[in-house]
């Protein structure tokens, strides 16, 4: 069963900007799916169309089998949205915001109040339930938008950069919470600029750039395609001169650190052997770049270079 099926979806705005150029996408029920892309790539437009906040130009969208063109009410009932921009009524109380949202989805007030307590407690906002939203911190507002999106217990939760601007502690606690609700059966689609977040949480990833899907596969498959990783090696003793690591691409960072590139032709064992031959002892090592970020930049840059080449021809 697909939670979301998008077929040949296009969107051209009134100013002529082609935000989506016929994308196809399927998200399985129960999946944790990352939708990545640079700013202006079309992520928010795609989400807007799925959630009926943006009119599509052409194509079809189905949510748990409900087509948004002829079964919109049922399709909408399946979705909970946490948008990119804060869109709370800043003059209303925390409790009213989530209870009203429940009402919009047809829940009676008694049920809404019970659920509001549950989700506000889970997102650590219950003590602030009588505060007006304007007085909450940025992280609290984000958590309130998650509580609001969950109040009708949607089968598909869409989060558009939910951790933007929140500190690392809150971000990690939000990750844990999202993992928990995904394990409980909610399908989650996540867009984020924190690629570590996508790598840590999601099982599938689609990368969208310039209105086109340029990658769509399991996260593990995508990451396996990386043929190159950079390790930062901290040495026990300072270097007196740059060592000779034949066959490796490397450089010295400071007196006790070097950067070594491990590509498909080398193994970590070979690197350690080369360092040992030079009489160097490894104190510790770390992966320099986020692997997904590297892949992402490679794909986006590659596409840009290809476009430039095509236009040059």
């Amino acid at each position: 069963m697909h939670a979301l099926t998008i077929s040949k979806l296009t969107k051209t705005y009134g100013n002529g900007k082609e935000a989506l150029k016929g994308i196809d996408l399927s998200v399985d029920a129960g999946d944790f799916y990352a939708l990545l892309g640079p700013n202006g790539a079309g992520k928010t437009t795609a989400i807007g169309i799925v959630c009926s906040l943006v009119n599509k130009t052409s194509g079809t969208v189905e949510i748990f089998g409900h087509n948004i063109d002829d079964d919109l009410e049922a399709a909408k009932a399946c979705i909970g949205l946490v948008p990119q921009e804060i869109n709370l009524n800043l003059f209303d109380s925390v409790l009213n915001i989530v209870v009203n949202q429940a009402g919009y989805y047809g829940l009676d007030r008694k049920t809404a109040l019970i659920r509001a307590e549950r989700y506000l407690r889970e997102l650590r906002l219950w003590d602030r339930r009588h505060d007006i939203a304007r007085n909450l911190s940025g992280g609290m507002k984000r958590r309130l938008m998650i509580a609001r999106a969950l109040i009708h217990e949607p089968k598909l939760l869409i989060l558009d950069e939910p951790t933007a601007g929140v500190d690392i502690e809150i971000r990690r606690s939000m990750w844990e919470y999202l993992r928990k609700i995904n394990e409980a059966g909610t399908t989650i689609i996540l867009t984020t600029h924190y690629l570590e977040e996508a790598e840590s949480l999601c099982r599938h990833v689609a990368i969208i750039d310039d209105g086109t899907i340029i990658e769509n596969a399991r996260m593990s498959t995508v990451l396996r395609r990386l043929q190159r990783e950079i390790f930062v090696i901290s040495l026990r003793n300072p270097l007196l001169s740059l060592p000779q690591l034949d066959g490796f691409d490397y450089k010295q960072i400071d007196e006790a650190e070097i950067e070594v590139v491990i590509d498909a032709g080398h193994t970590l064992n070979e690197m350690f052997a080369a360092l040992t031959t030079q009489g160097l002892e490894v104190q510790s090592m770390r992966n320099k770049a986020n692997r997904l970020e590297e892949l992402f930049m490679g794909l986006v840059d590659g596409k840009a270079a290809e476009a430039a080449k095509t236009s040059g021809n």
Partner: peptide, 17 residues
């Protein structure tokens, strides 16, 4: 006001008519 503050989206994403 709901449009300006964008919380009109609360209603627009919901299944109410």
């Amino acid at each position: 006001g709901a449009k300006f503050g964008r919380h009109v989206e609360e209603m627009l994403v919901s299944p109410m008519s």
